[in-house]
């Protein structure tokens, strides 16, 4: 079942467009920086802006900057697409009913779809880093990394931190992705699932950005700890928020997946 699902996804143009964006955007940003020169050396802005200011100092800065900027919006869209489309897409084509008239348990089908969507999410995130690193090193060379907090990392050490950060980024999508998956079991409109889950992400980010909203509430928003991995690039490394972020996603991921399971097992397949 997993192989069947994987083969379906790997033959889809949509998969390659999504993954192509993940790889291509960091390359385009790098070319823009190379052609246009480094951004103004001015203070302020978020961590991602800081990474971009320093992007031309070393090619290894580019994947950090790219992941930083893409992990908040574009990468989640691609990931939500993989999860949200998985069941709803089959329902939309009408093939879901033919999958389910085989002697296959519904839970097994869901498991295969979650695993393949997770794999594509990991590959997408890896491609952001690969694109940024390949283009960055080609454009700006293999030098030590200077972070916005003026910490200095050897390229190898920076990459190790980046790998950990990338793993964290992927895990952080789990809550919203689980929501997308739940929605996917409820509808035959893939666009609706992406819109629904990205709606949660956007509303959460907006509320999180309003300081007047009580911190006790903002701390429970699903995107609150999404950028906590930036703490890996300060000295000494700040991982407390990352650990909280990892635990923070658990109730969302477990809750929405349990709902998906519960819903799909009881669902009347009418599409």
């Amino acid at each position: 079942m997993i192989r069947v699902e994987l083969r379906k996804q790997l033959r889809r143009l949509r998969t390659y467009i999504g993954l192509g964006i993940c790889f291509g955007l960091p390359v385009i940003i790098t070319i823009a920086l190379k052609v246009g020169g480094p951004p103004h050396e001015r203070g302020g802005g978020g961590a991602e802006e800081g990474f971009f200011r320093l992007a031309t100092k070393s090619g290894v800065n580019m994947p950090i900057a790219a992941l930083s900027v893409m992990s908040m919006f574009l990468l989640p869209i691609v990931v939500m697409l993989f999860f949200g489309e998985s069941v709803a897409g089959e329902a939309n084509w009408g093939t879901l009913r033919y999958m389910l008239v085989r002697p296959v348990k519904r839970g097994k089908l869901l498991r295969a779809k979650i695993l393949v969507a997770s794999l594509l999410a990991i590959v997408g995130t890896a491609l952001v880093i690969a694109g940024g690193l390949a283009a960055g090193v080609a454009a700006f060379g293999w030098h030590s990394v200077i972070t916005p907090s003026f910490a200095v990392f050897t390229p190898g050490a920076a990459l190790v931190q980046l790998m950990i950060g990338a793993g964290y980024v992927v895990w952080n999508f789990s809550g919203a992705a689980a929501l997308a998956f739940w929605l996917s079991t409820m509808t035959d409109s893939p666009v609706g699932t992406v819109a629904g889950s990205m709606g949660l992400v956007i509303v959460s980010q907006i509320l999180d950005g309003i300081t007047a909203v009580p911190a006790g509430f903002r701390n429970w928003l699903p995107t609150h700890f999404w950028d906590a991995w930036h703490g890996l690039f300060v000295v000494p490394s700040q991982r407390t928020d990352m650990i909280r972020g990892v635990l923070h996603q658990l109730p969302y991921a477990i809750g929405f997946l349990a709902l998906a399971w519960w819903w799909f097992k009881r669902k009347d397949v009418l599409s």
């Binding site: 009408g94 093939t95 009913r97 033919y98 085989r102 002697p103 296959v104 348990k105 519904r106 097992k265």
Partner: peptide, 17 residues
Amino acid sequence: PGVKTLRRVGVLVEDPA
């Protein structure tokens, strides 16, 4: 759902998809 005897059954429900 998914009962094993479905192995012995061929199905065309509504439109082919």
